[in-house]
Simulated scan of single mutants.
Amino acid sequence: MAADRLRVAVFGASGYVGGELLRLLLGHPQVEIAAATSTRYAGRPVGTVHPNLRGLTGLRFRSPEEMGGFDVVFLAAELQTAIKVGADLAKRNECLIDLSPAYRLRDPAVFERYYGTAHTAPELLGSFVSGHPEDNRAALRTARLVSVPGCMVIATLIALRPFAADDLVDGDVIVDCRIGSSGSGAAAERLNLHAERSGALRVFAPHGHRHEAEVCQASGLAVRMTATGVEAVRGAQVVCHVPLRRPLSEVEIRRLYRDAYADEPFVRVIAQRRGLYRLPEPKILIGSNFCDVGFSVTPDGRRVVAVAALDNLMKGSAGTGVQCLNIRMGWPERLGLAFAGLHPI
Protein backbone atom coordinates (compact mmCIF):
# COMPACT_ATOMS: atom_id res chain seq x y z
CA MET A 1 0.00 0.00 0.00
CA ALA A 2 1.15 3.55 -0.66
CA ALA A 3 2.62 5.13 2.45
CA ASP A 4 0.36 8.18 2.24
CA ARG A 5 -2.88 6.22 2.35
CA LEU A 6 -5.12 6.57 5.36
CA ARG A 7 -4.93 3.60 7.75
CA VAL A 8 -8.51 2.57 8.48
CA ALA A 9 -10.01 -0.18 10.65
CA VAL A 10 -13.51 -1.65 10.72
CA PHE A 11 -14.58 -2.81 14.18
CA GLY A 12 -17.38 -5.36 13.79
CA ALA A 13 -16.56 -6.19 10.18
CA SER A 14 -18.45 -9.49 9.86
CA GLY A 15 -21.97 -8.02 9.79
CA TYR A 16 -23.82 -6.67 6.78
CA VAL A 17 -22.78 -3.06 7.41
CA GLY A 18 -19.19 -4.17 8.09
CA GLY A 19 -19.16 -6.07 4.81
CA GLU A 20 -20.38 -3.01 2.91
CA LEU A 21 -17.69 -0.89 4.55
CA LEU A 22 -15.02 -3.38 3.49
CA ARG A 23 -16.37 -3.46 -0.07
CA LEU A 24 -16.33 0.34 -0.34
CA LEU A 25 -13.00 0.86 1.39
CA LEU A 26 -11.28 -1.78 -0.76
CA GLY A 27 -12.16 0.34 -3.78
CA HIS A 28 -11.27 3.68 -2.18
CA PRO A 29 -8.09 5.14 -3.68
CA GLN A 30 -7.03 6.98 -0.51
CA VAL A 31 -7.52 4.19 2.03
CA GLU A 32 -5.67 1.16 3.33
CA ILE A 33 -7.75 -1.26 5.41
CA ALA A 34 -5.35 -1.98 8.25
CA ALA A 35 -7.70 -4.16 10.32
CA ALA A 36 -11.14 -5.79 10.24
CA THR A 37 -12.31 -7.26 13.54
CA SER A 38 -14.63 -10.11 14.41
CA THR A 39 -14.74 -12.11 17.62
CA ARG A 40 -16.47 -15.07 16.00
CA TYR A 41 -14.39 -15.25 12.81
CA ALA A 42 -10.96 -14.12 14.04
CA GLY A 43 -8.21 -15.59 11.85
CA ARG A 44 -10.47 -16.38 8.90
CA PRO A 45 -10.26 -14.62 5.51
CA VAL A 46 -12.92 -11.94 5.11
CA GLY A 47 -14.06 -13.64 1.89
CA THR A 48 -15.38 -16.62 3.87
CA VAL A 49 -18.00 -14.38 5.47
CA HIS A 50 -18.41 -11.82 2.66
CA PRO A 51 -18.25 -13.99 -0.49
CA ASN A 52 -18.50 -10.99 -2.81
CA LEU A 53 -15.00 -10.01 -1.62
CA ARG A 54 -13.34 -13.31 -2.62
CA GLY A 55 -10.11 -12.74 -4.51
CA LEU A 56 -10.13 -9.00 -3.85
CA THR A 57 -8.11 -9.00 -0.64
CA GLY A 58 -5.95 -11.23 1.54
CA LEU A 59 -7.31 -9.51 4.66
CA ARG A 60 -8.21 -11.74 7.60
CA PHE A 61 -10.44 -10.94 10.52
CA ARG A 62 -8.60 -10.25 13.72
CA SER A 63 -9.80 -10.29 17.32
CA PRO A 64 -10.95 -6.93 18.73
CA GLU A 65 -8.32 -7.36 21.44
CA GLU A 66 -5.63 -7.01 18.75
CA MET A 67 -6.79 -3.53 17.75
CA GLY A 68 -4.09 -0.88 17.77
CA GLY A 69 -4.33 2.80 16.85
CA PHE A 70 -5.49 3.97 13.42
CA ASP A 71 -6.20 7.15 11.51
CA VAL A 72 -9.92 6.28 11.35
CA VAL A 73 -12.02 3.54 12.90
CA PHE A 74 -15.49 2.63 11.65
CA LEU A 75 -17.55 1.12 14.47
CA ALA A 76 -20.13 -1.30 13.06
CA ALA A 77 -20.90 -3.37 16.16
CA GLU A 78 -24.29 -4.02 17.75
CA LEU A 79 -25.61 -1.53 20.30
CA GLN A 80 -24.25 -2.81 23.63
CA THR A 81 -20.83 -3.67 22.22
CA ALA A 82 -20.58 -0.23 20.61
CA ILE A 83 -21.41 1.46 23.91
CA LYS A 84 -18.86 -0.69 25.72
CA VAL A 85 -15.95 -0.01 23.36
CA GLY A 86 -16.83 3.48 22.14
CA ALA A 87 -14.98 5.48 24.79
CA ASP A 88 -11.78 3.48 24.39
CA LEU A 89 -11.84 3.69 20.60
CA ALA A 90 -12.46 7.43 20.81
CA LYS A 91 -9.36 7.89 23.00
CA ARG A 92 -6.99 5.69 20.99
CA ASN A 93 -7.79 6.77 17.43
CA GLU A 94 -7.64 9.98 15.46
CA CYS A 95 -11.25 9.72 14.25
CA LEU A 96 -14.18 7.43 15.10
CA ILE A 97 -17.17 7.02 12.77
CA ASP A 98 -19.90 5.06 14.56
CA LEU A 99 -22.60 3.33 12.51
CA SER A 100 -24.38 1.79 15.51
CA PRO A 101 -27.24 3.42 17.47
CA ALA A 102 -24.98 3.90 20.51
CA TYR A 103 -24.33 7.65 20.33
CA ARG A 104 -27.04 9.05 18.07
CA LEU A 105 -29.24 10.51 20.81
CA ARG A 106 -28.09 13.35 23.06
CA ASP A 107 -30.47 12.92 26.03
CA PRO A 108 -29.94 9.86 28.29
CA ALA A 109 -33.61 9.90 29.32
CA VAL A 110 -34.75 9.80 25.70
CA PHE A 111 -32.30 6.97 25.02
CA GLU A 112 -33.70 4.95 27.92
CA ARG A 113 -37.28 5.59 26.83
CA TYR A 114 -36.71 4.34 23.27
CA TYR A 115 -34.17 1.58 23.93
CA GLY A 116 -35.60 0.27 27.20
CA THR A 117 -32.29 0.43 29.07
CA ALA A 118 -30.07 3.08 30.61
CA HIS A 119 -27.05 4.22 28.62
CA THR A 120 -23.89 3.08 30.41
CA ALA A 121 -21.72 5.88 29.00
CA PRO A 122 -24.06 8.90 29.15
CA GLU A 123 -21.12 11.30 29.39
CA LEU A 124 -20.39 10.61 25.71
CA LEU A 125 -23.90 11.43 24.49
CA GLY A 126 -23.76 14.78 22.77
CA SER A 127 -20.05 14.40 21.99
CA PHE A 128 -20.64 12.96 18.52
CA VAL A 129 -21.40 15.04 15.44
CA SER A 130 -24.37 13.66 13.53
CA GLY A 131 -23.13 12.02 10.34
CA HIS A 132 -25.84 13.50 8.14
CA PRO A 133 -23.91 15.37 5.42
CA GLU A 134 -26.91 17.23 4.05
CA ASP A 135 -27.31 19.06 7.39
CA ASN A 136 -23.91 18.89 9.10
CA ARG A 137 -21.27 19.21 6.40
CA ALA A 138 -19.46 22.10 8.09
CA ALA A 139 -19.20 20.34 11.46
CA LEU A 140 -18.07 17.08 9.82
CA ARG A 141 -15.02 18.77 8.32
CA THR A 142 -13.36 18.93 11.75
CA ALA A 143 -15.19 16.19 13.70
CA ARG A 144 -13.26 13.54 15.65
CA LEU A 145 -16.40 11.67 16.69
CA VAL A 146 -19.17 11.00 14.17
CA SER A 147 -22.43 9.10 14.64
CA VAL A 148 -24.20 8.10 11.42
CA PRO A 149 -28.02 8.21 11.77
CA GLY A 150 -30.26 5.22 11.16
CA CYS A 151 -31.27 4.42 7.60
CA MET A 152 -34.90 5.42 8.00
CA VAL A 153 -33.78 8.59 9.77
CA ILE A 154 -31.61 9.64 6.84
CA ALA A 155 -34.42 9.05 4.35
CA THR A 156 -36.97 10.86 6.53
CA LEU A 157 -34.74 13.88 7.18
CA ILE A 158 -34.08 14.25 3.47
CA ALA A 159 -37.82 14.05 2.74
CA LEU A 160 -38.75 16.60 5.43
CA ARG A 161 -35.83 19.03 5.31
CA PRO A 162 -37.32 21.67 2.94
CA PHE A 163 -40.50 21.95 5.02
CA ALA A 164 -38.76 22.00 8.41
CA ALA A 165 -36.21 24.58 7.25
CA ASP A 166 -38.95 26.99 6.15
CA ASP A 167 -41.21 26.35 9.17
CA LEU A 168 -43.98 25.07 6.92
CA VAL A 169 -45.15 22.11 9.03
CA ASP A 170 -48.39 22.42 11.00
CA GLY A 171 -48.80 19.57 13.49
CA ASP A 172 -47.59 15.99 13.70
CA VAL A 173 -45.85 14.35 10.76
CA ILE A 174 -46.76 10.68 10.22
CA VAL A 175 -43.94 8.61 8.75
CA ASP A 176 -44.64 5.12 7.37
CA CYS A 177 -41.36 3.21 6.89
CA ARG A 178 -40.80 0.03 4.87
CA ILE A 179 -37.52 -1.88 5.07
CA GLY A 180 -35.93 -5.09 3.82
CA SER A 181 -34.63 -7.92 5.99
CA SER A 182 -30.98 -6.78 5.97
CA GLY A 183 -32.08 -3.94 8.25
CA SER A 184 -32.28 -6.51 11.05
CA GLY A 185 -28.58 -7.37 10.73
CA ALA A 186 -26.74 -10.62 10.10
CA ALA A 187 -27.69 -12.21 13.44
CA ALA A 188 -31.34 -12.74 12.55
CA GLU A 189 -33.82 -13.84 15.20
CA ARG A 190 -36.62 -16.25 14.36
CA LEU A 191 -38.95 -13.49 13.15
CA ASN A 192 -36.47 -12.70 10.37
CA LEU A 193 -35.93 -16.27 9.19
CA HIS A 194 -36.96 -16.74 5.57
CA ALA A 195 -39.68 -19.22 6.54
CA GLU A 196 -41.28 -16.63 8.81
CA ARG A 197 -40.69 -13.51 6.75
CA SER A 198 -41.32 -14.70 3.20
CA GLY A 199 -44.62 -13.38 1.87
CA ALA A 200 -45.16 -11.22 4.95
CA LEU A 201 -45.79 -7.50 5.39
CA ARG A 202 -44.90 -7.38 9.07
CA VAL A 203 -45.65 -4.21 11.02
CA PHE A 204 -42.92 -4.68 13.61
CA ALA A 205 -43.20 -1.16 15.07
CA PRO A 206 -46.77 0.18 14.95
CA HIS A 207 -45.63 3.17 17.00
CA GLY A 208 -42.59 4.46 18.89
CA HIS A 209 -39.86 3.09 16.65
CA ARG A 210 -36.45 4.14 18.00
CA HIS A 211 -35.66 6.09 14.83
CA GLU A 212 -38.58 8.36 15.72
CA ALA A 213 -36.50 9.94 18.49
CA GLU A 214 -33.62 10.64 16.10
CA VAL A 215 -35.88 12.38 13.58
CA CYS A 216 -37.49 14.52 16.28
CA GLN A 217 -34.07 15.47 17.68
CA ALA A 218 -32.60 16.39 14.28
CA SER A 219 -35.60 18.10 12.69
CA GLY A 220 -37.33 19.74 15.64
CA LEU A 221 -40.62 18.37 14.32
CA ALA A 222 -43.22 16.24 16.07
CA VAL A 223 -42.90 12.94 14.22
CA ARG A 224 -44.82 9.69 14.67
CA MET A 225 -43.23 6.70 12.98
CA THR A 226 -44.37 3.21 12.05
CA ALA A 227 -42.13 0.53 10.51
CA THR A 228 -43.00 -2.48 8.35
CA GLY A 229 -40.75 -5.32 7.19
CA VAL A 230 -41.27 -6.09 3.49
CA GLU A 231 -40.17 -8.98 1.31
CA ALA A 232 -36.92 -7.48 0.11
CA VAL A 233 -33.35 -7.98 1.28
CA ARG A 234 -32.08 -4.44 0.82
CA GLY A 235 -33.77 -1.09 0.59
CA ALA A 236 -35.80 1.34 2.68
CA GLN A 237 -38.65 3.65 1.73
CA VAL A 238 -40.40 6.27 3.86
CA VAL A 239 -43.80 7.82 3.12
CA CYS A 240 -44.20 11.04 5.12
CA HIS A 241 -47.60 12.70 5.58
CA VAL A 242 -46.85 16.38 6.16
CA PRO A 243 -49.57 18.89 7.19
CA LEU A 244 -48.76 22.40 5.97
CA ARG A 245 -49.25 25.80 7.57
CA ARG A 246 -50.37 27.27 4.24
CA PRO A 247 -51.37 25.81 0.91
CA LEU A 248 -48.52 25.05 -1.48
CA SER A 249 -48.72 24.24 -5.17
CA GLU A 250 -46.87 21.41 -6.86
CA VAL A 251 -44.59 23.97 -8.52
CA GLU A 252 -43.75 25.60 -5.17
CA ILE A 253 -42.95 22.26 -3.53
CA ARG A 254 -40.78 21.15 -6.44
CA ARG A 255 -38.88 24.43 -6.14
CA LEU A 256 -38.37 23.89 -2.40
CA TYR A 257 -36.82 20.49 -3.04
CA ARG A 258 -34.66 21.64 -5.93
CA ASP A 259 -33.37 24.64 -3.98
CA ALA A 260 -32.60 22.45 -0.97
CA TYR A 261 -30.72 19.77 -2.91
CA ALA A 262 -29.35 21.51 -6.00
CA ASP A 263 -25.75 21.04 -4.82
CA GLU A 264 -26.08 17.71 -3.04
CA PRO A 265 -24.10 14.93 -4.75
CA PHE A 266 -26.27 12.06 -3.51
CA VAL A 267 -29.84 13.43 -3.35
CA ARG A 268 -31.97 13.27 -6.48
CA VAL A 269 -35.36 14.99 -6.73
CA ILE A 270 -37.79 12.78 -8.67
CA ALA A 271 -40.54 14.73 -10.39
CA GLN A 272 -41.80 12.47 -13.19
CA ARG A 273 -45.43 12.45 -14.30
CA ARG A 274 -45.09 9.28 -16.40
CA GLY A 275 -43.26 5.98 -16.31
CA LEU A 276 -42.76 3.19 -13.80
CA TYR A 277 -40.64 5.18 -11.35
CA ARG A 278 -42.69 8.31 -10.76
CA LEU A 279 -41.97 8.18 -7.03
CA PRO A 280 -38.78 6.92 -5.36
CA GLU A 281 -38.30 3.17 -5.06
CA PRO A 282 -35.37 1.40 -3.37
CA LYS A 283 -35.09 -1.28 -6.06
CA ILE A 284 -33.08 0.83 -8.52
CA LEU A 285 -30.85 2.24 -5.75
CA ILE A 286 -29.37 -1.05 -4.52
CA GLY A 287 -25.61 -0.71 -4.11
CA SER A 288 -25.63 3.04 -4.72
CA ASN A 289 -25.24 5.94 -2.30
CA PHE A 290 -28.18 7.89 -3.69
CA CYS A 291 -31.33 8.90 -1.85
CA ASP A 292 -34.20 9.68 -4.21
CA VAL A 293 -36.97 11.98 -2.98
CA GLY A 294 -40.32 12.88 -4.50
CA PHE A 295 -43.78 13.98 -3.48
CA SER A 296 -47.48 14.27 -4.13
CA VAL A 297 -49.65 17.13 -2.88
CA THR A 298 -53.37 17.03 -2.11
CA PRO A 299 -55.72 19.10 -4.32
CA ASP A 300 -56.19 21.73 -1.60
CA GLY A 301 -52.41 22.09 -1.18
CA ARG A 302 -52.59 21.60 2.60
CA ARG A 303 -50.88 18.19 2.85
CA VAL A 304 -47.80 16.79 1.15
CA VAL A 305 -47.00 13.10 0.89
CA ALA A 306 -43.19 13.10 0.68
CA VAL A 307 -41.48 9.86 -0.38
CA ALA A 308 -37.79 9.01 -0.03
CA ALA A 309 -35.94 5.79 -0.83
CA LEU A 310 -32.39 4.49 -0.40
CA ASP A 311 -30.33 1.35 0.06
CA ASN A 312 -30.34 0.87 3.83
CA LEU A 313 -26.81 -0.59 3.81
CA MET A 314 -25.40 2.18 1.59
CA LYS A 315 -26.80 5.72 1.88
CA GLY A 316 -28.57 4.41 4.97
CA SER A 317 -25.33 3.30 6.64
CA ALA A 318 -21.93 2.35 5.17
CA GLY A 319 -22.15 4.69 2.17
CA THR A 320 -22.93 7.68 4.33
CA GLY A 321 -20.11 6.62 6.66
CA VAL A 322 -17.65 6.77 3.75
CA GLN A 323 -19.19 10.06 2.59
CA CYS A 324 -18.52 11.45 6.10
CA LEU A 325 -14.93 10.19 5.85
CA ASN A 326 -14.48 11.99 2.53
CA ILE A 327 -15.82 15.23 4.01
CA ARG A 328 -13.65 14.89 7.11
CA MET A 329 -10.51 14.41 5.01
CA GLY A 330 -11.31 17.13 2.49
CA TRP A 331 -11.69 14.66 -0.39
CA PRO A 332 -14.39 14.77 -3.11
CA GLU A 333 -17.57 13.35 -1.61
CA ARG A 334 -18.13 10.92 -4.48
CA LEU A 335 -14.73 9.27 -3.96
CA GLY A 336 -15.26 5.50 -3.69
CA LEU A 337 -19.03 5.98 -4.03
CA ALA A 338 -19.56 6.34 -7.77
CA PHE A 339 -21.66 3.18 -8.38
CA ALA A 340 -24.98 4.20 -9.94
CA GLY A 341 -27.17 1.17 -9.12
CA LEU A 342 -28.62 -1.34 -11.56
CA HIS A 343 -31.66 -1.52 -13.84
CA PRO A 344 -33.32 -3.89 -14.33
CA ILE A 345 -32.66 -5.90 -11.22
Results as ranks from 00 to 15, higher is better:
residue 272 Q to M: 07
residue 271 A to L: 01
residue 119 H to C: 02
residue 321 G to M: 11
residue 111 F to D: 01
residue 314 M to Y: 14
residue 177 C to R: 01
residue 244 L to D: 06
residue 203 V to W: 04
residue 135 D to V: 09
residue 51 P to S: 07
residue 18 G to D: 03
residue 329 M to P: 00
residue 176 D to L: 12
residue 159 A to M: 00
residue 284 I to N: 11
residue 79 L to A: 00
residue 75 L to I: 01
residue 135 D to P: 06
residue 102 A to M: 06
residue 166 D to M: 12
residue 319 G to R: 12
residue 27 G to F: 02
residue 24 L to M: 12
residue 60 R to Q: 12
residue 297 V to G: 02
residue 287 G to C: 09
residue 261 Y to E: 11
residue 157 L to A: 04
residue 343 H to K: 12
residue 43 G to N: 08
residue 118 A to V: 07
residue 239 V to W: 05
residue 112 E to Y: 08
residue 43 G to I: 07
residue 142 T to M: 07
residue 323 Q to K: 14
residue 113 R to S: 12
residue 256 L to F: 02
residue 113 R to V: 06
residue 63 S to N: 12
residue 300 D to H: 09
residue 112 E to D: 07
residue 244 L to H: 06
residue 184 S to Q: 12
residue 89 L to H: 05
residue 76 A to Q: 02
residue 4 D to A: 13
residue 103 Y to K: 03
residue 339 F to P: 04
residue 330 G to E: 04
residue 51 P to Y: 06
residue 112 E to W: 07
residue 319 G to C: 03
residue 288 S to E: 12
residue 161 R to T: 06
residue 111 F to R: 06
residue 124 L to N: 01
residue 231 E to P: 11
residue 57 T to C: 08
residue 247 P to S: 15
residue 217 Q to E: 14
residue 295 F to V: 03
residue 1 M to F: 13
residue 36 A to P: 01
residue 311 D to P: 10
residue 337 L to F: 09
residue 288 S to R: 11
residue 199 G to D: 04
residue 247 P to T: 12
residue 176 D to S: 14
residue 103 Y to D: 08
residue 77 A to D: 05
residue 201 L to Y: 15
residue 29 P to F: 05
residue 312 N to G: 14
residue 234 R to E: 15
residue 71 D to I: 03
residue 273 R to L: 13
residue 256 L to H: 04
residue 304 V to W: 06
residue 122 P to G: 09
residue 11 F to H: 14
residue 211 H to S: 09
residue 193 L to W: 15
residue 337 L to W: 05
residue 315 K to H: 14
residue 214 E to V: 10
residue 296 S to L: 15
